[in-house]
């Protein structure tokens, strides 16, 4: 797994420059609660050399909004909708209520304070 550390402003441009639909396979978006911050990871995998898994990692504050990559990788909307509900982070143009009921206690995967 190759980690590429970037920042919240740059991540979208980085992915746009990197992603080619016929070379890379978008896997999933993951988030890990680090306590103070949340790390968001975009996973890609190369078709030709598949043990090469690339993760774009960004550390954000829980209330920051992260950009949606739906206009670059069309199928990312499922992963984004899941993160919004399970991790309680904000993603551009993504509403709550895909995974859990909209009135459910949000962010079950976040650490309890």
């Amino acid at each position: 797994m190759n980690r590429i550390e970037t920042s919240i402003d740059k991540v979208k441009d980085d992915i746009r420059n990197f992603y080619k639909p016929d070379l890379y396979h978008f896997v999933v978006i993951n988030a890990v609660d680090l306590g103070e911050k949340i790390e968001v990871q975009w996973f890609f995998c190369e078709y030709a050399n598949p043990s090469n898994i690339i993760a774009f990692c960004v550390q954000i504050n829980p209330d920051e909004e992260i950009p949606s990559i739906r206009d670059i990788v069309e199928s990312s909307w499922v992963a984004e909708a899941e993160l919004v509900d399970l991790m309680n982070i904000k993603i551009q143009n993504t509403a709550k209520g895909f995974v859990l009921e909209p009135d459910f206690e949000s962010g079950p995967l976040r650490k309890k304070k």
């Binding site: 999933v28 890990v32 199928s75």
Partner: peptide, 22 residues
């Protein structure tokens, strides 16, 4: 992700159908 204890810090499962929904 582990943290040197018996309990994992985070486990993420991505199932095949999840990628196929779109």
């Amino acid at each position: 992700k582990g943290n040197k204890t018996q309990i994992l810090e985070r486990l993420k499962i991505k199932a095949p159908t999840f990628s196929n929904i779109p």
